[in-house]
Design a protein around this nucleic acid. Structure first.
Length: 387
RNA sequence: GCCAAGAUAGCGAAGUGGUCAAACGCACCUCUCUGUAAAAGAGGAGCCGUAAGGCUUCGGGGGUUCGAAUCCCUCUCUUGGCA
């Protein structure tokens, strides 16, 4: 089964896990895969060459960040995002919706509605927000987000949505979802085909932790002419059980309504979540986790909690690699003691080596996952990792 | 040898009669991080205790005072200057 954009290569016989291929003007993406986050047109501390070595197929830049700095015009003049940062593989841009809402939520007690504080004002048309850089006032609409994303020129764009906070009331979740739906329609209409090279657009499903809302959202968004689907509003504070539940509610609907269509999970990426998501049919997922943890010295490894803190003094004299089972460049060339030292000394190489390894670890896991699905062994791989 | 300045928790450095178990920075310890305002953030940090609280601290010793890191005497050491 295939269309021009996405093809399904293999379905797991026991779960909804599947292997697919996304075809973009800048190359193909074999799924399931991880999408590292590089909001400011960089996966922090890593070069495009590093990313290639690691096996990164696609990463996730951000409309909000790039719009505020350096500005869309700058990137447009310099030939678009790919050229600007010299990344010639697939690229996604987030709509900026998440930032507008989550950054505005400065006061954490005001979780019921982002409007409870003054930094963000939502109206029927869009969102007024203030720059975290200089406090300047800006207005985003679905059309504006799409316009920026088209100028940036990523292969895959995300429709402008409202991510309701957690916890929230049923009524607010419904309001945010309905707004997301209206904005989805407008996002679709805003796309100017042929403006740049072909860009694909993903619609976002919302509905918080409410079953009927999630299902309604899944049906509505998948009924539209999006190239792909994205699930938003998860990993925002709800339990892992709730997140799995949400996927259980909506994935069958999405896969039925839009049979040949990639499904992205927004903002999820802890190791157990990866299995949860892939098992339910998720094709791509982005997350800051591996890169953010790396920068504070939390090293991913196949052990309890899948992470440990290289800053701990017990590693000061440890000659072993940071992950003895990992074939990556860092694990092949440096000791725990060395990385420990780099972190203690605040040396820049610390962030780079840790980020390199952590991303490699995740990418390598996805290689294993794809291999397992191919052999119908996904569940046994999962069992082996999450015992 | 004389004169001057100084000695505060691992280091640096506030404090100059009570609100000081002692600011602040670094280092240290613990925890947190899921569509990146993140090379971040929160907390701890004399000793005992989960806590309430108790006990011992501001170079050593002695004194004044209801009360001293803070005032006085003395010793030791450090740093300048003069011989």
């Amino acid at each position: 089964m295939k269309n021009n954009f996405f093809s399904l290569l293999k379905k797991d016989i026991k779960t909804r896990a599947r292997i697919g291929k996304i075809k973009t003007p800048n190359g193909e993406i074999l799924t399931p895969t991880f999408v590292p986050v590089g909001s400011q047109a960089t996966v922090k501390s890593l070069t495009p060459q590093d990313l290639r070595e690691i096996g990164v197929q696609v990463f996730f830049a951000n409309t909000y960040h790039l719009y505020l700095r350096p500005g869309v015009e700058v990137i447009e003049k310099l030939g678009g995002l790919h050229k600007f940062m010299n990344w010639d593989r697939p690229l996604m841009t987030d709509s900026g919706g998440f930032q507008v809402f989550s950054l505005g939520r400065k006061n954490r007690s005001s979780t019921l509605s982002p409007c409870a504080n003054s930094l963000v004002k939502i109206d029927y048309n869009g969102v007024t927000f203030y720059s975290h850089l200089d406090g300047s006032k800006h207005y985003f609409t679905p059309e504006k987000s799409i316009e920026i994303q088209q100028k940036l020129g990523a292969d895959i764009m995300i429709a402008f949505d409202e991510c309701a906070p957690y916890p929230t009331t049923y009524n607010y979740a419904k309001t945010a979802m309905e707004r997301t739906h209206r904005w989805a329609l407008r996002s679709l209409e805003a796309v100017v085909v042929g403006r740049r090279q072909k860009q694909f657009l993903f619609g976002v499903i919302q509905g918080s932790t409410f079953r009927d809302l999630r299902q309604e959202s899944a049906k509505f968004i998948s009924s539209l002419a999006f190239d792909g689907l994205a699930i938003g509003g998860v990993a925002v504070g709800e339990s892992k059980k709730e997140m799995a539940q949400i996927l259980d509610w909506i994935m069958p609907i999405l896969q039925k309504e839009k049979e040949v269509c990639p499904i992205h999970l927004l903002g999820v990426g802890e190791i157990d979540d990866i299995f949860t998501a892939v098992e339910r049919g998720i094709d791509t997922m982005d997350c800051v986790m591996p890169t953010r943890l790396a920068r504070v010295g939390h090293i991913l490894a196949k052990r309890k909690n899948f992470t440990y803190d290289i800053n701990k003094s017990i590693f000061a004299n440890d000659p072993s690699p940071i992950d003895k089972n990992c074939p990556c460049y860092v694990c092949h060339n440096f000791s725990k003691a060395y990385l420990h030292h780099l972190f203690r000394a605040n040396e820049l190489l610390a962030y780079r080596l840790a980020s390199y390894h952590n991303l490699f670890f995740i990418e390598d896991l996805f290689v294993k996952i794809r291999e397992a699905i191919r052999k119908d062994e996904f569940l046994s791989l999962k069992k082996q990792w999450l015992k």
